[in-house]
Amino acid sequence: MDAQKAVEEILEAAKPVTVTVDSRAALVEDCNKSGIMVDADLNISSKVKEEHLDNLANNLRSPILKMVVRKALRKYS
């Protein structure tokens, strides 16, 4: 699986459902906690490995974003 591409796609898909300051901040926090460094515009500044993607799937608090991940994983797994 290309974890980098998968996360890029996840973050792109997450943009329309994280348009409020709080929801975007929560996503950034969940990404960073998973080992994926992102800024407030959801640009990735670190190399993404598969383990980071697994971490992200586990760490996301928003059920909607978990669905975004699930959708991306279908494509990339």
């Binding site: 329309p16 669905m67 959708k71």
Partner: peptide, 22 residues
Amino acid sequence: PDNLLWADNGNYPEQLSLFLGE
């Protein structure tokens, strides 16, 4: 995630697709 009343051609297509698709 916000409280916009009207759908637009910006975010709503993806918001709709994500919901209905799942």
